[in-house]
Nucleic acid binder design. Structure first.
Lengths: 243, 243
DNA sequence: CCTATCTAGTGGTCTAGTCCTTTTAATGTA
DNA sequence: TACATTAAAAGGACTAGACCACTAGATAGG
């Protein structure tokens, strides 16, 4: 069972044991584990040691706790590869997937320094903040927050936000998108991302920050921060050699 | 300082305190924190409570521990421009950093299906496999594995592998690199990456897979898989709109 | 001068408790 | 019946120790 004299730490032995039980379907997702006190007594070890083992599995995303209730088994990840680097909606259509959105937040804000400096506007200028969950075939793949200045984009409604933002800009407003500047980094999901993307603590995410510029002048028309599920997203880029 | 009667947990108060000290540059990256025992004595709390605070900051990627040495502050990210196809060495020079490499593996292989199909060669063709740790100012930032077919690149030595691969191709061989295809994805580090990049279990990494093509024809000249530390690396891309 | 050993200090692991808050269900009461 | 109270059980926070393994620098011996 558990060898207290082994050089392998007890908490690690317990971690492996619980992992095995999950893999062999002894513990089904949603099921709860024996309580920390039970496990401690059963294996004749300290509760703190049990907690260390469970903590690690929580960080790995296999388990989660609920105070007063117990410790539960998370359910499995599913995998799917996507690619591309244009607008989300376009890219999804190109791949034969159905894009959709859920609007979380749509409001006019102002005075946020980080945003006003990126968009190169006055701190008193009104900015639309649009936060959406992006779905591909009804599966959440990204959490997207867009900032666009009202004085450049005009008036927006909150009821056509499930359409492509680029489409709105190009077809409806006749804007010409010139280029975009993007940065890509990887991180671990925060609590909000975990919640909306239905992922787990410790899961990696890709963070893409994009500023889009119009042909007419060098004024940015929008700034978007997108957080993608790393298990579902992958970016492909083809680029020429610069000399 | 730390309010033991506050409803806010002590470990959380300590976390915030350490974060502040890092942000206000009281702790410089690379610096080590007071030892766990010192912190415990200073704030008159248990060492286990100190450990809980530090554990969380380690998970967040702000700190890392080294057994027998101490707890240290992580440093900020490097950035790489992906708007053109540049090599690691070039990119580091552009940023005023000193690139270096440590050769882990240099050998001729053949018959690996994944490689032969990417490079579009026969399964009997010999391929150089070059695995290197990449350093910027003596800090490991990436683990890179390059595959290049002998029949296209010619004979390579294992003693000039600390130089730029592109430099070898372009200056010494007079090859003309036309373009590259890259994919970017995020994942969690595996054991090998943890070991060589000096990172920790559960840390995110960026994986860039690149195939480089020559001007002469559409034959790939090399395929490289690079695994970057997500805490130190960030990619920037500027791209035109595709219609 | 070099090497082996010692030692102080670090994080790693572990114990056996205590007291707290939250959840849930059983119990009691109007 | 409906609602308040209570108690058991869960995880959360915390303590004051213990011993281990590893690191690095000081020290002693050849």
């Amino acid at each position: 069972m558990i060898d207290k004299n082994s050089p392998i730490p007890i908490y690690y032995q317990l971690e492996q044991k619980i992992k095995q039980l999950i893999e062999s379907q002894k513990f089904v997702p949603g099921d709860f584990l024996p309580s920390e006190r039970e496990l401690a007594e059963k294996y004749n070890i300290s509760r703190m040691t049990v907690r260390q083992a469970i903590n690690n599995l929580v960080t790995e995303g296999l388990l989660y706790r609920e105070k007063g209730k117990g410790t539960f088994v998370c359910d499995k990840k599913f995998e799917q590869d996507l690619s591309g680097l244009t607008s989300f909606s376009e890219e999804m259509y190109n791949r034969g997937l159905t894009p959709s959105s859920q609007l979380l937040n749509f409001q006019l804000i102002y005075g946020i320094h980080k945003i006003t400096s990126i968009l190169n506007i006055e701190s008193s200028d009104l900015v639309y903040e649009i936060k959406r969950i992006r779905f591909a075939n009804d599966e959440p793949v990204a959490l997207e927050t867009t900032y666009t200045p009202q004085k450049r984009i005009g008036t927006l409604d909150d009821d056509n936000m499930d359409r492509s933002f680029y489409e709105i800009m190009e077809k409806n407003r006749n804007f010409n998108i010139a280029y975009g500047e993007q940065s890509i980094e990887a991180s671990l999901a925060n609590d909000e991302e975990i919640k909306y993307l239905k992922i787990h603590k410790g899961d990696p995410v890709l963070i893409i920050k994009r500023t889009t510029f119009l042909q007419s002048g060098k004024q940015p028309i929008e700034y978007t921060k997108s957080v993608y599920r790393a298990d579902k997203y992958k970016f492909n880029i083809r680029m020429p050699r610069n000399y």
